[in-house]
Amino acid sequence: MTSTGAVKVEIRGLHKSFGKNEVLRGIDCDIHTGEVVCVIGPSGSGKSTFLRCINCLEEPSAGTVRVDGNLMDENAKNIDELREDVGMVFQHFNLFPHLSVMENLTIAPTLRKKMSEDEAKQVGMELLGRVGLADKADAKPNSLSGGQKQRVAIARALAMKPGLMLFDEPTSALDPEMVGEVLDVMRSLAKEGMTMVIVTHEMGFARQVSDRVLFIDQGVIAEEGTPAEVFDHPQNERTKSFLAKVLEA
């Protein structure tokens, strides 16, 4: 797949500081419809902050993020509507523990899209089937394994039929034997043409599914390109030393 789709996300001059700590120091980037972008880089480099600025969980200190041309601004009247189209999957799942698995999937469609309970459940069952957890519809999140939780979290985000999915280190909190089941679901999403931005430490996965890899270091995009370019022929010294560290492990 190449990045020939329309521009889905347009990021211009993005800066983000937490107090005196400047985490993002000027990021410009376009993400196209249907594109799968993996974001790699050392911890503390600003990868997650970059991702969280896309759906405005973090408000930029300067610069703009537009999704489908709409400015993502916490104080905008339509920010809730804009977020409906941007699904997010978190490192620690963040399932709603007081709701059943099915209720986790139906709460947003029924509250936001005014979908009927039955219709939302039908969509929910389809999605649970897709992530291989149809039998867990009535379970409480706390009874699931990490891998199962993350698959439910992906299904929950998909229930809103988003045009863009953000993944914030979705396998980092998982036991090693559960990483595969989550990556499989993400792989199939990518295959279907979902626009995805994935912050990950799974280099093999990034190489396999990405159309483009961004290497973020010290708050800027230090290098970007196809997986072959970034992984096999890194130009930047910092990319080289980062890859040398993570790939030898």
Partner: peptide, 25 residues
């Protein structure tokens, strides 16, 4: 805090998040 973030990322408003997600917990 991840609960609020997850709810907001799904498009739930601040009010819906407070009453449906935060208060019950």
């Amino acid at each position: 805090p991840g609960q609020r973030e997850a709810a907001r990322s799904l498009g739930l408003s601040a009010r819906q998040t407070t009453w449906r997600i935060i208060i019950p917990q």
